[in-house]
């Protein structure tokens, strides 16, 4: 159990350590602190957006233990000890990830507000299934609402990554 500190108002605070984009961060949170708020407010990782706060829009999508989840629906304390990837950590170096490149080159970005969550969902799909069909792409991003693009160029961008991924690369990455 994480260390508990009780403040002078009797409210309990919990010390948690989360690994975000490869680095460990230790923070003190209240029980009611949501993971999305720790990422945005404590770690300044504001690429993770708040859109609906009820798990409907997917703007706050992150990878938790490599699975896409809505970070607005998860208590920070529940993520104690876990690995998290946010949009800021999706590329391994200063080079863009292929999914990011494809989004830019295929017109998949308009206002950009859904983009981080959308890219995380797409990345999770392509990691699991490097050559999805169109339906699988649409299923993977169905929990990410975009009001600008009608998803047309987003789907196109994800399929483009698949097209340009050769299978040798996939195997060597695994």
């Amino acid at each position: 159990m994480s260390q508990v500190i009780t403040d002078k108002h009797g409210i309990q605070h919990y010390m948690i350590t989360i690994n975000v984009n490869g680095d460990d961060y230790t923070r003190v949170v209240k029980a009611n602190t949501l993971l999305v708020n720790v990422l945005r407010d404590e770690l300044d990782l504001t690429g993770t957006k708040k859109g609906c706060e009820l798990g409907d829009c997917g703007s706050c999508t992150i990878l938790l233990e490599n699975k896409p989840v809505d970070s607005c629906m998860i208590l920070a304390i529940e993520a104690d000890g876990k690995e998290i990837t946010t949009i800021e950590g999706i590329a391994e170096s200063s080079e863009l990830d292929k999914v990011q490149e494809a989004f830019i080159n295929n017109g998949a970005i308009q206002c950009g507000y859904c983009t981080p969550g959308m890219i995380i969902s797409a990345k999770a799909l392509l990691t699991r299934n490097p050559h999805p069909n169109e339906k699988e792409v649409r299923e993977a991003i169905a929990g990410n609402l975009c009001r600008c693009t009608g998803f047309v160029n987003i789907v196109k961008a994800v399929l483009k990554v698949s097209e340009e991924t050769n299978d040798k690369e996939v195997i060597s990455n695994e």
Binding site: L45, A91, F103, I109, P116
Partner: peptide, 11 residues
């Protein structure tokens, strides 16, 4: 390329 594409794609 969209002038702000990179900023938006990287969060």
């Amino acid at each position: 390329p969209k002038i702000d594409g990179r900023e938006k794609a990287t969060g």
